[in-house]
Nucleic acid binder design. Structure first.
Lengths: 206, 206, 206, 206
DNA sequence: GCCTAATCGAGACGGTACGTCGAGTCTTGTC
DNA sequence: GACAAGACTCGACGTACCGTCTCGATTAGGC
């Protein structure tokens, strides 16, 4: 989640040593992911059962388990598997434009209903199985926080932001606002959310 | 969730017409809630099965269903059933103190592990069953947003805050930051989170 | 079941000492029996749940239990509670006419679908709860067998039947044939069943 | 039920297409049937719950449902699943010997307590679910009645029995007597029941 | 005209079982 | 090896009855 710059090579989702036996059907991967996305978007994490995916795709359950050992792994693939197509925030000109771009990119990601569904399910899964958090979530979050901290250091050195600003707090605010609005809130996404949030983040309320 | 002032009398959770019929065992209510809280806190929403609660309390499953027709209803009771013990933000002196109090109160609520577990489960449940959101969540959120808007109007009229500040955006930021940090993030709650967030909210980063 | 002459006074189904408290609603008795008969006839013993009866009659379950402590008792009431309206076989003239009347009367009773339903349920109940058999069934069967034995003794003394005929075997044959045909068999009741059976009973197949 | 000659190959109870998929555990079949028989014999149809069978065998309920979709199907397997070990009545010499053998074979089957329990439960199930009767019972009964009719035709052509004898009535009498005596009656099976019944069937009472 | 007692409705309670679904895993035979 | 097929255990789901209970409100005697 919350991937920012995303220039890491990203392991091909269900990595396999290309060894001896019959090779995996590459179509299956995409079919499974597609079905999972559909189910997530339609009725959320609980509806994305391996059983349902299997029936939708004509694939059997073991075929799915061979690729993703857990619903959480599959959900994680959908939530954080791609990345890439995101504009590199760092290159954007101007502080406000950077923040806006960052928020917009986040909002763009989290607006997809399967994103919220996958992430809500992931949180539940992490509670049940804390080591999953360490495996799937923590590295991504750490990297994203570090990326933001780096950007902020640079901005601070240029005098663009107040030195007191805590990078983690900013991260919580920015990501939290978007995540909360898209996943939790009943309020529809207004046209100006991103700008409104950006305004407060930049100028405060005072 | 996100209850702010909380001066309504709050219906006794599983409301029943009194008089007719054998009265419900009031101990059962508390035992069930207590077991549910324990399970939520320990292993999250999935672990809070009616089955497990029944075994822990010695109560049978139908007895639980009689009170809460759904895991979501029970989780909602735990997340939002109480309220009350929360200081009325409006009375606090000074803008910064008000914001701080608001955030601290939120943080206090969401720090309880059963709170995050319940809310994550609720989000998943809402995805599966959208009408649950309307029943359980939307009214509370509307009220909380309205409460905040009222406070902001007053503050604005006193010139304490910039007129441009969007109440909903502020709500997303404040609640989102806390919710994100407690439910989603792997980062532990630092001593100064609340202050750090408050600082940005008040002064912006610029 | 299998009641033959039926001149015993038959206890009023749910006998109560007419003592102090509020008297039982006499309408309830009939409503319950009527509902039970309907359910039995329609979907058999399993469908005759106290719950369903209660809903049909507007009576509560405890009200039924006050009168019949068990489904078996209620079913027994329906199967064997009335009696009476049956012509006394003994008075009929001629051996063949007597046998015919006996079989016809049995057939008449067992043709009612609630009869078969009640009796099938009773058998199952007796298996679960053998003492119920002693309480509800055995006395009636003993009396019926004794009645038949008496008739046979008389007939034998008049030289109407062969001395070797075993009364119990005759009972098994006559009652069994009717019970089997009505309760167990898929074959519809033909016009001449009773005559056909009677013919074999009288003359044998040889 | 009431199977007579039984020379059909008898499908392996829970027929499955062989080959594909993990094969069923053949031990499970036998364990389930054995447990079911025990429960039936001990406390009748109601005691033969899938739950109890599951606990006795260590198998889970779905495993039983996979084989027998209904208590009725399982009971039917126990009542009518085997067959075979029954002497072919047709080959027996002499009319009386044939009838005796037929009755004795029936009595032998129905004496097993699980037989009565299964059949009583089946009757109740058929009432609840009439199409079950068509599926499980009617074919067997039709065949048995046809078999008997054939035997009678042959015997009649040899002048062994009176032409007037109705095959269905004889079937009702013979099977009914045995079924009634074993399932319904409180009278214990006497040494001579079969002979006594046979005597009446052959010679009548007159 | 109270007292006592049984009934009534309502509805909860501990049980037991139902039939189903999903999670992961395992076992075949085929590709 | 992967794959389709389909079994397996385990755990939970939500529902239905069972027979019993606790209430408050009737509705009768008996004193």
């Amino acid at each position: 989640m919350i991937a920012m710059t995303m220039d890491s090579p990203l392991t091909e989702s269900p990595t396999v040593a290309p060894g001896r036996g019959r090779p995996r059907d590459p179509e299956a991967d995409e079919n499974i992911l597609s079905a999972a996305r559909t189910l997530l978007a339609k009725n959320g994490f609980e509806a994305m059962s391996f059983e349902a995916i299997a029936q939708m795709t004509g694939v059997t359950r073991p075929t799915i388990y061979r690729r993703w050992p857990t619903k959480a792994h599959l959900a994680n693939e959908i939530a954080n598997g791609n990345g890439r197509d995101i504009p590199d925030v760092v290159e954007t000109e101007g502080l406000r434009a950077q923040i806006l771009a960052f928020l917009a990119q986040l909002m763009h990601q989290y607006e997809r209903p399967e994103m919220g569904a996958a992430n809500a399910g992931l949180i539940v899964s992490y509670q049940r199985n804390p080591e999953l958090r360490d495996e799937l979530h923590t590295p991504l979050e750490s990297k994203a926080r570090a990326d933001l901290a780096k950007i902020l250091r640079k901005a601070r050195s240029r005098g663009l932001i107040r030195p007191a600003v805590d990078p983690d707090a900013l991260f919580d605010i920015a990501v939290g606002a978007v995540v909360f609005r898209t996943m939790f809130s009943s309020l529809p996404r207004s046209e100006t959310v991103v700008e409104d949030i950006c305004d407060i983040v930049l100028n405060g309320i005072d």
